[in-house]
Design a protein around this nucleic acid. Structure first.
Lengths: 149, 149
DNA sequence: TTATTTGCAAACCGTTTGCACCATA
DNA sequence: TATGGTGCAAACGGTTTGCAAATAA
């Protein structure tokens, strides 16, 4: 886990892209919050601590680049914001999915390996070659259940 | 399946809401395309055939109402549009999920009952009371695989 | 030096809102 | 008639884009 600057520089150079302080700082910001699901605005605030003059447009452009490079994942929690999180470095790791409290909005991650089997099954019956999946579960977290009593 | 005007009228009246031609026509439009995932703009175009003077604001307000009534489902296919589809009338029916071709954008539905078990399991370990889930799988459809050869 | 990247501000576009008019009950 | 719903246009807010200045290679 964590931010590996050397390998990031290597990736950028191999694609003919320039290594800028902005790009390094955005990736570092996302790496520093591995358990959160940050909006562009939240990333902007984090990066501004180090680079006060950065513009929100650069945040959006960098986010898009990092997604294309597969270094971060896009995430939609249906609250009107697109969110991002640092990708797992080991691509063979279990997928993690999201448990969303419909009352307070809290989001928990959970791991899963059950769906890999389902992927194969669905691929067979539909002819799709499935290479990724995303699962969200909605409900009430423990706290919200207690507060209702 | 299909559009049941009588029961819709009953639901509206029971909530003290008025039965308008706009509301009936929006629900009818969504019912007429049970296998599609319509954007607000697409619903607008469909409804304008019957009610040319309708405004897009009414579409948005009606869609939101229908969601709250549980008659239609919101859907996010990560293409920048929020989409809607008519809900299954039998609430005990299997969930259906979505298989999205990352090349052509085609969307197939598939049924599932495997996840009901997973819901219970996750609920036990996290303390969440899970009452819904949404699963998306991403891959290449048969056509796009053939076209690549 | 030169091709990319950045910051700024304006544009974009899907969605929401305020308000006067209209329709349902 | 009275309450809610509708159509219109303007506002909103997250995201994208055009462009000149700045920077990495």
């Amino acid at each position: 886990m964590g931010y590996n600057e050397e390998s990031f520089i290597k990736i950028l150079k191999s694609k003919g892209l320039k290594v800028t302080n902005q790009r390094k700082t955005v990736l570092k910001a996302l790496s520093s919050k591995p358990d959160q699901h940050l909006t562009a605005e939240e990333i902007y605030e984090l990066v501004r601590v180090d680079i006060p003059e950065i513009g929100i447009a650069t945040i959006y452009r960098t986010i898009q680049l990092l997604c294309e490079l597969g270094l971060i994942d896009k995430l939609n929690l249906d609250d009107g914001y697109v969110r991002y999180e640092i990708g797992k470095e080991d691509k063979n790791e279990h997928h993690h999915h999201h448990l969303i409290c419909v009352n307070c909005g809290k989001v928990l991650k959970f791991d899963d390996d059950l769906l890999d089997e389902l992927e194969k099954q669905v691929g067979k019956t539909t002819g799709f070659i499935v290479h990724d999946h995303e699962l969200k579960m909605y409900g009430y977290c423990r706290d919200c259940q207690n507060n209702r009593k």
